[in-house]
């Protein structure tokens, strides 16, 4: 089941803000591929700029039950995910976000504070993905815990299909133990959303 906000537009669109190296592109791909596994039509693509580690980057996801025809960048996302909270300010992360859209931010601050900083008056969800990642994988890799939060908040794909995607992509690369800890981090973020 796609979340209710999806039916407003036929195509569910996500924009992810991060910094080069934080896995904004990977996060987009995981969500899209998990949706494809559930029989959806998908697109996942980054906006390529100067690809420097630490530079602000953006990636996009489109999910639909029908063929997705447009290849233009996402302008009015349903959901914006901010992997790196230091981007708030230098980047207008809420740009084009619909009033009934959702802003999901990796932060240790309160949702109120994020609302003030972003001037976004719609639904703001916070998740301390950095802290969760430090606790689970011992590294500042907040992109996968962010997916746990996204899944809980929007229901865009099932938690299980994201976990399967993580296993499929990570098992050979980082081994079973680290993969399990990554999945544990995703679950923690999932559970942290009330």
């Amino acid at each position: 089941m796609l979340p209710t906000i999806c039916f407003v537009k036929e195509i569910f669109e996500i924009r992810i803000h991060g910094r080069g190296g934080q896995g904004a592109k990977t996060a987009a791909q995981f969500i899209a591929e998990a949706a494809l596994d559930q029989g959806k039509r998908i697109q996942a693509f980054p906006e390529y700029g100067p690809e420097r580690s630490g530079a602000p980057v953006v990636s996009f996801v489109r999910i639909s039950d029908k063929q997705i025809k447009s290849y233009a960048p996402v302008v009015n996302p349903d959901v914006v995910m901010v992997i790196d909270p230091t981007l708030i300010g230098p980047v207008d992360v809420a740009e084009g976000l619909a009033k009934d859209g959702i802003l999901i931010v990796n932060t240790s601050e309160t949702a109120e504070k994020i609302k003030n900083k972003t001037k976004f008056n719609g639904k703001v969800c916070i998740v301390d993905a950095t802290k969760i990642a430090m606790g689970s994988v011992g590294k500042n890799l907040p992109n996968t815990p962010m997916l746990g939060a996204l899944v809980k908040i929007t229901g865009v794909v099932g938690l299980e299909s994201v976990n399967n995607k993580v296993k499929e992509k990570f098992l050979d690369k980082i081994g079973e133990e680290k993969t399990n800890r990554t999945i544990e981090g995703i679950k923690k973020a999932y559970d942290s959303i009330q």
């Binding site: 591929e33 494809l36 039509r41 697109q43 693509f45 390529y48 997705i68």
Partner: peptide, 12 residues
């Protein structure tokens, strides 16, 4: 095919 738009975009 279009560079980046097609070559680097994931789709079905």
């Amino acid at each position: 095919q279009d560079g980046f738009i097609t070559s680097h975009g994931v789709e079905n």
